[in-house]
């Protein structure tokens, strides 16, 4: 494989979880709820997926476990952010710590001998995967990988600006009070959006554990969830730029493996930090603060005062 093909291949593989996670997070943020806990839900999904797959010997059962665990974790976040109107950033960061601690604890107890698990193997799509360079990169993914991409496309279509869903979500994120007065179920939609983040983040985590490394290691996600959140911010809460940001971060991550093939010999640490550094630059360079949904992180309660 040429160095370039290797980079693209790795980039796509690493971008897929970012992509699906940020797709859900994009919907949620447009509805006004910020989930720092994408990271924690991804990790939870990865852990539950690995445990499920290891216990049953079936990757699909593992995926199911990941989804259930992701939904549970997201339900906790939704209760905190939407129902109890707690600080979304604080609870999100705390939820991540909880996920990290709990999965580390769980892995100590559960994976006593070996941490490899059965996973999804790549399925090369005929003809398409024969296209040079991008063929193997794009069309030689696992079923889970295709699923993630499909879900992302589905979300983009479903929540586009022109659809009823998209309109409702935009209105709720921009001005919850007005949306409420227009008869929209503000908190139900927000709760649902956070649950959606549960599904997409769990898929992303499962992809890491079951389709990528086929194992669970402590802190497997290592900040990928934060990158997904950063991608939404860097993408100014729009679908295409968010996708571009995900691809960009994926490539940056892939560079640490592909760099030697390019004859680039940088210390590993520099390559590992590069996606985060790029994320800082992207977040600060591109964002006009005005672009954010006006009601982002603001909980809604119908409290009319005297």
């Amino acid at each position: 494989m040429s160095a370039f093909a290797e980079l693209v291949d790795g980039g796509v593989r690493l971008a897929i979880p970012l992509l699906v996670a940020s797709a859900g997070e994009l919907v949620s943020e447009r509805a006004g709820v910020l989930n720092m806990s994408v990271e924690g839900i991804m990790l939870t999904g990865a852990f539950a997926g690995a445990v499920g797959a290891h216990t049953t010997g079936s990757a699909s059962a593992g995926l199911l476990c990941a989804l259930v665990a992701g939904l549970l974790a997201a339900a906790l976040q939704a209760v905190l952010s939407v129902t109890l109107r707690a600080d979304q950033i604080v609870t999100g960061v705390a939820a991540n710590a909880l996920a990290l601690g709990a999965t580390t604890y769980g892995a100590r107890l559960y994976f006593t001998e070996g941490r490899t698990v059965p996973g999804f193997d790549p399925v090369a799509l005929p003809l398409l995967s024969d296209i040079p360079v991008i063929g193997p990169a794009l069309f030689d993914q696992s079923v889970l990988g295709y699923g993630c991409v499909l879900l992302t496309v589905l979300l983009a279509v479903l929540f586009g600006r022109r659809t009823g869903f998209g309109l409702a979500v935009t209105a709720i994120g921009a001005d919850a009070e007005t949306a409420d007065r227009s008869g929209l179920p503000v908190n139900a939609v927000r709760f649902g959006a956070v649950l959606l983040v549960g599904v997409t983040s769990a898929l992303a985590g499962a992809h890491l554990a079951l389709a990528d490394v086929h194992a669970f290691t402590d802190n497997l996600t290592a900040g990928a969830g934060y990158l997904a959140v950063a991608a939404v911010i860097a993408g100014r809460w729009r679908a295409w730029p968010t996708l571009a940001a995900c691809a960009f971060f994926g490539l940056a991550q892939a560079l640490q493996f592909a760099a030697p093939a390019f004859g680039i010999h940088l210390p590993t640490a520099v390559l590992v930090m590069s996606p985060y550094l790029l994320a800082v630059v992207a977040v600060s360079g591109l964002v006009g603060a005005s672009r954010a949904p006006a009601g982002l992180t603001r909980p809604f309660a119908r409290e009319a005062r005297a």
């Binding site: 309109l167 209105a171 921009a174 001005d175 007005t178 949306a179 007065r181 227009s182 008869g183």
Partner: peptide, 16 residues
């Protein structure tokens, strides 16, 4: 008013 400024008039009416 209870209109979402980010949307057009038509979108606001559809919202209702």
């Amino acid at each position: 008013f209870s209109l979402v400024p980010e949307l057009t008039v038509g979108e606001n009416l559809l919202l209702a």
